[in-house]
Write a protein that binds this DNA or RNA. Structure first.
Lengths: 193, 193
DNA sequence: GACTAAATTTACAATGTGTCGTATAGTTTA
DNA sequence: TAAACTATACGACACATTGTAAATTTAGTC
């Protein structure tokens, strides 16, 4: 998993692959709290006990899968990151590459990123804010004068990351009504800070 | 719960209050998947069977609690929303009121909004983006020319809501290192769209 | 083909779930 | 105040899930 030098036994890889596919399938069919090791092993066509040879429990397995995902995304993004440091470009191709990557693996990302668990509270607040901001955008006619306020860096990072991730999640929830290219352009123009 | 006219029996209110407090306590102590009806009833000092007289299961109870939360937030925000429609103010006092309200109930909001369940994947991506955006902010020296792009309304709403909620969550995670007033000002200056 | 590691099989105790009656205590209404 | 109503407690039940521990079979490696 983390060390590709070891663990090359095809049986191990096969079993873990089966488990991952089964988990994704089940996450598509039911909310995570309903997924048991029983069901998972059944779906993966492996013995229940075998599961425990690989993962402590289901949360542990999710964590490992998240690690894998993070690694993959990093690879997609890394090249651009290097570029970024060299040239101070303003088009930020990384974003587009990221969105393309997500679109290519849309089935996976939609399931893992929009799976309802206890995102209930966050979701509720999110919807509330969406309504309010929507209304605000409607009634926005006046111009915004440049109020010179120094923005705390960490706040800007919070704001920017949440906006980016949240936009991607909403985009996936709606089954990607825009192309990655178009969305990237839109997001870039919103990041006007 | 939803209809305050009925369900005035003090026993009902007491029991539900106990259950809610117990659930919050347990959420503080362990991740949600470890919380069982058993433990919950034990902590709430009620019989396990009584739980089922009020909620179908724990996810159901969480949903009801989220409803209550949403209602409360709406009350805090509603006055400002009405104001907003009347006057086209640009200071958006709603945001500050919301943050104050959250700060006043910080214990509750921190627990329910930052509770780790299967937000694992989202969290991972969030962190990744935070790193990247952070690096980008660092190397941002050049000025951003006003590229005239029409922004899709729904995308702007996604972006704005996610940014707002995400910022609040990050703020709670860090135990509110800024005052609601300061954070409101910062967020407002970031919402430059 | 022999050695090694993974997977299966069976079994077990512990815990959790959801749903029964029935008894008891608290609340509301006449 | 008494009667009618309702929520809660209690014990019990069948059933599912969990995590672990053998012993055995299967598959991969050298």
């Amino acid at each position: 998993m983390t060390n590709p030098n070891e663990r090359t036994d095809p049986r191990v890889l096969r079993t873990r692959q089966f488990l991952k596919e089964a988990l994704i399938e089940l996450m598509e069919e039911m909310s995570i709290e309903k997924i048991t090791v029983n069901r998972l092993a059944q779906r993966a066509q492996i013995n229940r006990v075998t599961f425990y040879l690989h993962y402590r429990d289901i949360p542990d397995m999710l964590e490992k899968m998240a690690d894998d995902m993070a690694e993959e995304v990093l690879e997609v993004v890394r090249e651009d990151t290097d570029f970024m440091e060299a040239a101070q470009q303003e088009k930020w191709p990384m974003l587009e590459h990221l969105l393309v990557h997500i679109a290519e693996n849309a089935k996976f990302y939609k399931i893992v990123l929009t799976s309802r668990k206890s995102t209930i509270f966050t979701d509720r607040l999110f919807k509330l804010m969406a309504d309010i901001i929507s209304a605000r955008v409607e009634s926005r006619v006046t111009a915004h004068d440049a109020s010179e306020v120094t923005v705390q860096k960490d706040i800007a990072v919070w704001y920017g990351s949440a906006a980016l991730i949240g936009t991607i999640i909403a985009w996936l929830r709606e089954d990607m009504p825009y192309t990655p290219q178009y969305l990237a352009k839109q997001i870039t123009s919103l990041r006007a800070n």
